[in-house]
């Protein structure tokens, strides 16, 4: 059942993105930035956590979860160390994604030749 929820939720977010892309002049860069902000906003009231509980990876795969992880790490650190914790914990949960993307990108750019 969780597979169906994953499919529907992730597909639905992509559908919204595609509708925005086709019907406005916004570029994919605009849309991904908007979605990250939406993800961060939803987690401000812990809504996104509940969505993840229900739909599983369907909510972790879209870029909205990037905003959710940023604020989630910041807030959990802030509970221990106050306002400065917002700055300390910002990358706690997203570090793995960003680091792996940078490392893989660097290695593959060195190995493969650009084709055009």
């Amino acid at each position: 059942m969780i597979y169906l929820y994953s499919f529907l939720f992730c597909g639905f977010i992509c559908l919204i993105g595609q509708l925005i892309l086709d019907n406005t002049k916004l570029t994919p860069g605009h849309i991904t930035s908007i979605f990250v902000v939406v993800g961060a906003f939803l987690d401000t009231f812990s809504i996104y956590d509940k969505i993840i509980e229900v739909v599983g990876a369907g909510a972790l795969v879209p870029i909205t979860s990037f905003g959710h992880s940023l604020i989630h790490g910041a807030l959990s650190k802030a509970q221990g160390s106050g306002f400065i914790g917002l700055l300390m914990g910002m990358f706690d949960l997203t570090a793995s994604g960003i680091t792996s993307a940078i490392v893989f990108t660097f290695i593959f750019t060195l190995i493969f030749k650009p084709r055009d």
Partner: peptide, 19 residues
């Protein structure tokens, strides 16, 4: 376009859940 985005996005979500 919207339909393709929905299906492909959904498949990526299912792959994520499988993994």
């Amino acid at each position: 376009n919207a339909f393709i985005a929905f299906v492909v996005g959904g498949i990526v979500g299912v792959i994520g859940q499988l993994l």
